[in-house]
């Protein structure tokens, strides 16, 4: 059976879906991906769907599941390269892909992962009890 390759780029896993996703293939991808996150210790997953003409509720749910599973394993998921026609169809169908981050292309996806990672780290640092007792709000980033 065909499998979708999972490529490791530093601490990010890149999955490019080039064929129509069928049930077996999607399940295999979920398994492969979670195995690889654990074995490589990756902190980010990028799923490239540039080649997908059709994203239906099944594919949408699979993307959401992958995102949720990765999150449990401490890896953020970004779906990149969604085609305009696909986005319009999803909106028309009322499938908002909850819990899935998206970016226009792989480059922006990597950037988003970096920012999310930094943001998560910063908020973890911020949420520690402040030894000096200073409770003023952090400076506004704008």
């Amino acid at each position: 059976m065909d499998r979708i390759p999972v490529l490791a780029l530093g601490d990010v896993l890149l999955v490019s879906i080039q064929v129509d996703l069928e049930d077996q293939l999607a399940l295999a991808l979920q398994e492969d991906l979670s195995d690889r996150i654990v074995s490589t210790g990756a902190h980010g997953v990028i799923i490239d769907i540039t080649a997908l003409d059709i994203v239906d509720s099944f594919v949408g749910r699979m993307l959401a599941t992958i995102a949720a599973v990765s999150k449990v394993l401490d890896a953020e998921t970004v779906v990149v390269g969604m085609r305009p026609a696909v986005a319009i169809t999803l909106v028309e169908l009322g499938l908002p892909l909850r819990g899935v981050r998206t970016a226009l292309n792989v480059e922006l996806g990597l950037k988003l992962l970096r920012e999310v990672r930094l943001g998560a780290f910063a908020s973890a640092v911020d949420s520690r009890p402040d030894p000096t007792g200073d409770t003023s709000a952090p400076p506004d980033l704008q």
């Binding site: 305009p84 986005a87 028309e92 908002p96 226009l104 988003l112």
Partner: peptide, 12 residues
């Protein structure tokens, strides 16, 4: 609203 949501889905 649809346009905005579609753009958001694509990551913009």
């Amino acid at each position: 609203l649809k346009t905005v949501m579609a753009a958001q889905l694509m990551g913009a």
